[in-house]
Design a binder for these strands. Structure first.
Lengths: 369, 369
DNA sequence: ATGAAAGCGCTAACAT
DNA sequence: ATGTTAGCGCTTTCAT
């Protein structure tokens, strides 16, 4: 976008060379060829093509014309080698194929693409990794990208520090990391909002499906924050959450299914009348499992999720929606600012709002339909 | 994976330098530093670190030790500049956040990552683009990546040819392109299988929800191939498909919804008893719309999709499943072969199998439950 | 088995 | 406003 884009180069091929412009597509075209064709020096060509000042208008036009004719495109490797900038951002994420992550990537790519940046995708180990954190090779990363977007990745201290020392800007999405810019939702408020909704419907026996086994004390606090909001809201209502109604589900559909079966199979434990699921995918699994047990949703059981998943309306799922694609856009802009801006700026944390969407999977207590 | 990974570099920082190894993380460490620390020349370090022959075992160990101690990582830009290889593959896709694409990317990333390649994500205009095709700047791409994966992207002839002339291997997924390697499903058979299933259940009035408006005559033939399979199977059964039951839906949920409402609102046209949707997402939209009209699925209407979407079982959706993640893996391997292999090899097209999954959204004709 | 030297394609000083 | 020169950090002949 920001770079001059040569056309699909309708090079006069095959026929005898009329002039320098008719090089076959296969032959390498460097800045010296453009210089020769335009009659200027490589330095001037470089300046002209990058829109730098100190080039006369006529020269710029001539250079651009020559470059377009030859189908010239500067070598990213060469310019990265000398400028130290790669025009590429990296994005590290535990999954690409989960809705939340792909939606964030989508939003980020939109902004990066418009700014002329490429996007490099780095996989990282899943959070179920026993190490409980993520180590990235900062020197490797640093030489490939101008900045990094970390999606729900609780980078371990060492990775963080080395990244900072190398002056690679990092912006997080979904997790707050001390000293880094980030885009976040207030997950405690999310937990409170969902719980408040269920309480208002008359529910008292509410289960939490999430991932609060405490193994993620390193920064990946999404689930625990939501759980805390749940507990606080319950206590504010004068209720003490039943520990037996906390179920570890991870963030997956399978996890939601399994959790539901578990919570309805505890001998001597009264089942819940409502479930607050840590994500829409967990909620979907729970709905599926509930129906497979012959339970009516919301007649016998109300279920609410979190995310505003693209497909949530198909399940008529009540949810606390967050602007996921926007988070990608915002994070991308934060990263661009850090790279484009003059000096290193203090980390800024952007908190995005959420919205309770009341749909059909939550209903008043005791109103079997 | 294939590269020596320096540890998180527990560099003795802050304290007075005991030796060369204790450089602060911030200072640049190049091959000359490693050479100095190990007592060999840069050339030998380069050879040792890349596992090239002609280096004694003891030297190799010494060099590796020095590199690890210093936390050295070679500059990709510098080596790309000289070797012409970037150790990066590109993947062009119209969407990242649609299930099919993210699943393919997932599979490809798995293979690329294990082979030590990075993955660059390129967005392209959506297929609804009036141009009906995609133009990519081959010179720009060529200097950034060693190969390209094109997902359901009917690249226009010019893009293709320039890519080939530049010797950039391209592998397609989902669409066959003359002269290129690719991974495909036999979409005509997919259409036949779905239709056969519905016919076997007694349905005769079957609608096709897809995208056969004929605008994609440039290679994006997924929908038309499935439509053709549908027609052929119908004719084989002695039935002539009703043109009024062909509905353009694209590949989206919204499209499926809209198509269903349309097909049930045509004055004087008998509605279908079954729908063959070109994708699971279209089928999901159709199910949702059908239920919102008070229709029972499959009591009043059977619906089958295509894909084997991760969430399809939640809808109890019958579908012709394709191994999506595997297609990403296979395509990635094809690309690796082309890059790693000796000479240019002839394009190979891999056809992957599909599987009819009978679930609850399809049922026998006239058995309202 | 190892080293010295040249250079990949570009950009950034420093001329002019 | 434009050209000349040097060099980014590696890899690769070509010597030794």
């Amino acid at each position: 976008m920001s770079e001059p884009e040569p056309p699909a180069s309708p090079v006069t091929n095959g026929s005898p060379a009329a002039e320098i412009g008719s090089l076959p597509l296969g032959s390498p075209i460097g800045i010296v060829e453009v210089a020769a064709a335009s009659g200027f020096s490589p330095a001037t060509v470089s300046r002209a093509l990058r829109g730098l000042p100190g080039v006369s208008a006529s020269t710029r036009v001539a250079v651009e014309k020559a470059a377009a004719t030859l189908g010239y495109f500067p070598s990213p490797s060469a310019s990265a080698l000398i400028t130290g900038r790669t025009n590429t951002f990296g994005i590290v994420a535990p999954w690409v194929s989960r809705w939340f992550f792909s939606a964030v990537i989508d939003g980020a790519q939109e902004v990066f693409g418009a700014a002329g940046y490429d996007l490099l995708l780095y996989p990282v180990a899943t959070p179920s990794d026993p190490r409980g954190g993520y180590v990235i090779n900062s020197r490797a990363i640093g030489k490939r990208v101008d900045g990094l977007l970390a999606l729900n990745v609780p980078l371990m201290d060492s990775s963080l520090h080395s990244l900072q020392t190398l002056h690679i800007p990092v912006v997080t999405v979904g997790t707050a990391v001390q000293g880094l810019s980030g885009v976040l939702v207030d997950n405690e408020q999310v937990g409170r909002a969902a719980t408040r909704h269920l309480l208002a419907l008359g529910h008292r026996r509410i289960a939490f499906f999430g991932d609060d086994d405490g193994s993620h004390t390193d920064g990946f606090t999404v689930a625990t924050d939501r759980a805390r909001g749940f507990e606080l809201e319950m206590r504010d209502a004068g209720l003490e959450p039943d520990p037996q109604l906390f179920q570890v589900s991870g963030f997956s559909i399978d996890g939601g299914e399994a959790a539901l079966h578990r919570v309805f199979s505890q001998p001597g434990v009264a089942p819940p009348t409502a479930i607050f699921a840590v994500s829409d995918e967990v909620a979907m699994g729970a709905i599926y499992a509930a129906r497979s047990r012959g339970l009516s949703v919301p007649g016998d059981l109300s279920i609410i999720g979190v995310d505003g998943h693209d497909l949530s309306y198909l399940f008529d799922l009540s949810t606390v929606a967050q602007p996921v694609k926007d988070q990608g856009r915002i994070a991308a802009r934060l990263l661009l600012e850090q790279v484009t801006g003059p000096g290193p700026r203090p980390p800024s944390v952007v908190s995005v709002g959420t919205e309770l969407i009341r749909r059909g999977t939550t209903g008043p207590l005791g109103v079997a339909r």
